[in-house]
Amino acid sequence: MLDTRTDEELATLCLSDMGVFGEIVERYERRLRAYIYRIGKLGPEDTEDLLQDVFMKVYQNLNSFDAGLKFSSWIYRIAHNETMAFFRKRRARPHGHALDVDEQVIENIASETDVLKESMEAHDAVRLKEVLATLSREYYDVIILRFFEHKGYDEISDILAVPPGTVATRLARAKAQIRKQMNTNGYVYA
């Protein structure tokens, strides 16, 4: 029965039936675990603890969900903020990035940065990871959300709580940096 419900409907149902929250957890745990890992590169235990904290926070703040947003944007925002708060508490920066660069990601980045896909594939995906690892936090976040989480500009704006124009600017600058780095590394442009 719950399978057919939208996230937004489930969020409303959770308020009267806590058990329904389990369905939300099941829908998002894999995606949020991957996201937290990508932006934080934490160990499995820390990732798991953080993931649980995220869901606790989601449950506690269900009434703040704005029906004008996508539920997924809202839950990603909480995951993002909790991950950053986790590092602030530890007075540390996210140490490195853990990226699973598959063919789809390469294709997306290649097409949006005008770098020939064949050219990128000819090199090891590790090289792309290295390039991405040189990006600053704010550029890295938009690249992750755009190419790894497949979010639109408005969704990224809602997740990072910055204006859509800022998302577009950051994305353009991040792509320019990737293109520049690829150029240094001898990639061919379309």
Binding site: M18, F21, G22, E23, V25, Q52, Y59
Partner: peptide, 10 residues
């Protein structure tokens, strides 16, 4: 499962 753990924590 994660959902069971979370519901229990709640």
């Amino acid at each position: 499962s994660t959902s069971e753990k979370i519901l229990e924590r709640i």
